[in-house]
Design a binder for these strands. Structure first.
Lengths: 331, 331
DNA sequence: CTGAAAGCGCTTACAG
DNA sequence: CTGAAAGCGCTTACAG
């Protein structure tokens, strides 16, 4: 490996001068900088980020903690988050909660990340408090945990759900079912409560047998729809916890031969790219996931810079995107 | 930050002893190990990976170089690769070629990765030779570059394509079109050549006007299908460079109101999870992408261990998975 | 404007 | 079995 000492030797300066010159320190003369840059180029030298990290006591690597990497939702957060981090001179390292290499908190601390973004927090996860105790900067992305305050980027589902349900009611649905997300996530819980409250304003109550819960994945929607639509007397509409769940439901409907929206209407939440496919055309609730992901990136680097600043929180509005999976209620 | 020195003080031993004890060095007595572990636990200490990396001169971080993070194909390589790396005690850091922070090679070198896997190599990319020159271990994933030899994990498309085309011919297609991948990728080129060669055995030639090329993305398939099927005299079947392209084509067909496989048949390559959706049911060529991704993970850590070993290469076989997008040719 | 010195948190010979 | 010493590649006061 070639180091700043090699460059120093070639340029005929001291090693610290190489360090300063390459970081464009104003205290170094232009002539020297020039000489150093040439030497560095000649040797193909690039400074070791790890030497630097050890020296300054902080790295430029942020971790993204996710449980389900396979889930397409996360592809759409990883991409923009990575780009924004790169723009800020940081790297993205992936961490999953199911880490076999021991507790995530230890992993995070040991691996010298300057901060982490938590994308799959549950209400009962211990990670936030562990990170807090160890002084590791972090931000909540999308989901939050109630007990440990920290920066967060979230979405406010209300407006989108109101618009969606207004359409649902206008189309004559009164027998509505739902496949909600997990109860132990802030997003799952908030969306469910909002749906129930707004439905209530319209005089509609969800029948217990028309409701399912499960992880925000394809399978939940798939199995949920089989359960709900496979019955003699199914609801005319099924609200899904998110688009991936709705995609599962849509496919289950196709398997069952139940027409959407002829026999049953379906709604999602997230408006992923797949939802606008001609083959899908899912009516859903949208928000700017791309901007959210980038905001989280900016937030974590800012936080790493000023660990003591007041927690900030950014919330993104939602809107209804009607497509073709919600039709007039069959009578 | 709490360091091994703090633990040493509390345990009443020297700092190197802490280091050895925690790594379970057999030369340390059980009694001492016990004491050190307790002290470490009490202080909530976890060893700094970056201190360690600097000391041993090698990190446990492997980079994955990808251009299009949004592409669902990569979600299915990232997940298994990450899991396998984690199992091996390594981390995955994401790198995109469009790195604004200067040339990727410099980035890779500077950031102290122990190796990188190249997932979006083109025939003309300079990265392989740069990495080679700088002595950075790397492996080709899926695609290779011809000039720089290195470890690789690839797929052999022949068997799958043979089976696919046998079915195509049996169903009476003779007017076949294609939306191939980019000419400057080994995968794009190899699949195209194989298709042409096997088709030739069946006495079929692709008409120039029935062929399109483009990046392996949704848009390529989408625009390609609009161009091919929007004409007066379209081919009866369109072979796509991969599933994501085929998904674009399938959706374009839906938009155009052309029935699949009634009006036109469509084939893919990869067999992504989406392809088996009831809404999709894409006939395609399959291989074990999961195993491939894990193999690449194992390969890069092995390579980082023995930089001088002979390059190894692992190739995965393919098979045809008939579903419903290929039908009898209309006459 | 530049250099010598010390230090970041580890590991690894080398002694004992 | 354990410790003192040196070093990994940087950065950052401190002198000059």
């Amino acid at each position: 490996m070639i180091t700043s000492h090699d460059v120093a030797r070639l340029a005929g300066v001291s090693q610290p001068t190489v360090s300063r010159a390459l970081r464009d320190d104003p205290k170094v003369s232009e002539a020297t900088k020039q000489r150093v840059r040439e030497a560095a180029l000649a040797l193909g030298y690039s400074p070791s980020a790890i030497g630097r990290a050890l020296s300054v006591g902080r790295s430029t690597r942020v971790g993204l903690v996710v449980t389900d990497l396979e889930n397409q939702f996360y592809a759409h957060v990883i991409a923009p988050m990575h780009h924004e981090l790169e723009r800020l001179g940081h790297e993205l390292v992936l961490i999953t909660e199911s880490s076999e290499s021991g507790p995530v908190a230890e992993h995070v601390i040991g691996h010298g990340l300057c901060g982490v973004v938590l994308a799959t927090t549950t209400v009962d996860s211990i990670l936030p408090s562990r990170l807090h105790d160890r002084g590791v900067p972090f931000v909540y992305f999308n989901r939050t945990a109630p007990n440990v305050p920290a920066d967060s980027v979230t979405v406010d589902p209300e407006q989108g759900i109101r618009e969606l349900l207004a359409d649902v009611v206008a189309k004559g649905h009164s027998r509505v079912g739902a496949i909600f997300g997990p109860r132990n996530t802030s997003t799952g819980e908030l969306r469910e409560q909002t749906v129930r409250a707004v439905l209530d304003e319209h005089g509609i109550t969800l029948a217990h047998r028309d409701v399912r819960h499960g992880p925000f994945d394809f399978r939940t929607g798939h199995e949920g729809m089989h359960a709900l639509a496979g019955r003699a007397d199914p609801p005319t509409l099924v609200l899904c916890g998110n688009d991936v769940v709705a995609l599962g439901a849509l496919n289950a409907a196709a398997e069952l031969g139940v027409a959407v929206p002829g026999d049953v209407s379906i709604a999602g939440f997230d408006d992923l790219p797949t939802s606008s496919w001609a083959l899908v055309r899912l009516s859903t609730v949208a928000y700017d996931l791309d901007a959210m992901s980038r905001a989280a990136a900016r937030m974590i680097v800012a936080r790493a810079d000023k660990p003591e600043a007041e927690p900030v929180t950014e919330v993104f509005p939602t809107r209804y995107v009607p497509r073709t999976t919600i039709g007039t209620a069959r009578s």
